[in-house]
Design a protein around this nucleic acid. Structure first.
Lengths: 343, 343
DNA sequence: CTGAAAGCGCTTACAG
DNA sequence: CTGAAAGCGCTTACAG
């Protein structure tokens, strides 16, 4: 990569029109233009009209930096995905969450900036960006315990809402989570009620609240489970395959598996197929998420539905609350068993 | 969604330290602090040291809005994906491109902002955001012909580089593209050299340069092809399945298909499997992209490699050139046949 | 309802 | 090498 010379002098942005230009064309003062732009309070009808015309004529667009410098807010928030970039692209849950947050914020004229903090370097860069005043707050998704990012945001006093419990920061940081533990309980109880005896589980990452809480729910129902029935994954399809192979070696006669994400469940089913096992006849599979892949999978997945729409809505609501000075809060949303064909 | 009251008074950002605070602590003037921050030219050793210490002591972080207001630049550029959000998550090519651009820009201390312009509404919001001075330029990926977004960016004078030829704007807008037409030629020639007689194609969207150019390459080799051999897709896996089914109905005896994306090729193979056709024994399949799914597919895909690493590097280079006043340019990068198992 | 003025936090010629 | 000062483009009390 060749280093490009930076322009020494600021580009005059091709004479980009300023508020004074608008004021001159409209025949009013700059203050009146500003008021017309910000809600139109204390502006007479004719003045308002004149300003609108002048804006159209000049092609004026507000300079956000100037505005933010005085208002001390940027009207944008960061959506920080603290995961390797691959996962952003693989996991449909993020998609749903992102869309929901974008929409909810859009209703308040707030722009959502998507950032992927895959590497430690990314996290540092994003930490700097976010604390330099570019955003008013952050929505943090899928942060793992011990991440320095959450700590930094907190230290800087930036309003933050996490998706899932912020392990170790439950008291100071707002968060929204599905009731992972209860969802896990529902699934494992259901599997047991269907007559399965040897119920294994493929967990999520155990440095996230979803990972530990779903495993806790499993143990709530099967407190005496053989440790060999528990294998960990990282929510990806590939890890589901690997984990299933390991389970098959450790406990060949298992007859059901609670897999802690739909994506991993798809991987597990592939591994079972290769091993010549039928789903659900030989081994029943229960997933988690009710993501897009659940219904599309063959056979369609029995799973636990996470209320992603509500999760994103609540995240935005909490963050906006923060911005207007409200204290932190936690919101836990119920999950629901969805029975399809794999169990 | 409940509307939150906006804070009436600007939050004082908890007394966030300013440059004057640093200057006071360091015992120098504000100008000297600024110089120390911007390269350290014309700052004596002791003064520089004092400033560093003061910054650490106060926890000072530059206010980007204030800086941008005077420098007229934001040191960030937008990566605009002009596609439904789903595709961002499905198509691994975007992932590779995004990562490459992030890295290349990072070397110049420029932040990349990812935005997904899935709907017309998104495009308008992004148009406003981008032209309000938030970014110095834009990398536009996967824009379809007739999109108003490119036009708007152009009208606003924002430096833009597109990935793929900007249909209808080739002369005024910089772009980087793989040699799609030649890649298609290579693949179709290869299929023919392997003895295939009835070679169909599943095209990409025909309002993108990749779509039209790859089809043109197909016709370069098979100018007399039966129109029923040509069916269109939109690069997604699902569209590949549908297109393959259609081809199978229209031309049951086809013995090879040039599929214009790896993702569609995976879909096509699934459709063939359902129809009881073996790949490559009954029908040979050639893909395009050499994306992550190509090697992971069963059987592994014979495909055309796009040099994504170079594409992102060149995109960034052209954009930085723009920012320092260089005129537009086009860069076409060669593609390469990769033979695996499907043809 | 309106304008004149102060000020947000920086950078950068300009003088010294 | 350094400081004082102007100015980037806005918003918002304040007076009228």
């Amino acid at each position: 990569m060749v280093t490009q010379p930076r322009p020494q002098r600021p580009r005059p942005q091709a004479g980009r029109p300023t508020m004074d230009d608008v004021a001159a064309v409209a025949g009013v003062s700059r203050g009146t233009v500003s008021r017309a732009l910000n809600g139109g309070h204390n502006v007479s009808g004719p003045a308002f009209e004149a300003v609108q015309r002048a804006i159209r004529k000049t092609g004026y667009v507000v300079n956000q930096h100037a505005r933010s410098l005085v208002t001390q807010r940027s009207d944008s928030v960061a959506f920080i995905l603290s995961e390797p970039q691959d996962r952003l692209f693989e996991d449909p849950n993020f998609n749903v969450l992102l869309r929901g947050c974008t929409r909810a914020l859009g209703e308040h004229d707030i722009t959502l900036l998507l950032t992927v903090a895959g590497t430690q370097e990314d996290r540092e860069r994003i930490g700097r960006y976010v604390t330099a005043g570019h955003v008013d707050g952050a929505l943090l998704v899928s942060d793992h315990a011990g991440s320095s990012l959450l700590q930094e945001l907190k230290d800087r006093g930036l309003p933050v809402v996490t998706c899932g419990r912020p392990l170790g920061h439950e008291r100071e940081i707002s968060y929204v989570a599905a009731d992972d533990r209860d969802g896990a309980r529902q699934m494992v109880s259901y599997l047991r009620s269907r007559g399965h005896r040897t119920i294994a589980t493929i967990t999520g990452p155990l440095d996230t609240s979803g990972g530990v809480d779903r495993l806790a729910g499993y143990y709530d129902v099967l407190g005496d489970a053989d440790p060999r029935l528990v294998v960990s994954g990282d929510y990806t399809q590939a890890s589901g395959e690997v984990a299933m192979e390991k389970l098959l070696r450790q406990v060949p006669d298992l007859d059901a598996v609670f897999v802690c994400s739909d994506l991993m469940a798809v991987g597990a089913i592939a591994a079972l197929a290769r091993a010549g096992k039928r789903v659900p006849d030989d081994v029943a599979i229960g997933g988690f998420d009710d993501s897009k892949v659940a219904a599309a999978s063959t056979p369609p997945l029995t799973t636990i539905r996470q209320p992603f729409g509500r999760i994103s809505g609540e995240m935005v609501r909490l963050l906006l609350g923060h911005l207007s000075g409200e204290p932190p809060a936690a919101v836990i949303l119920p999950t629901e068993l969805v029975v399809r064909a794999t169990a």
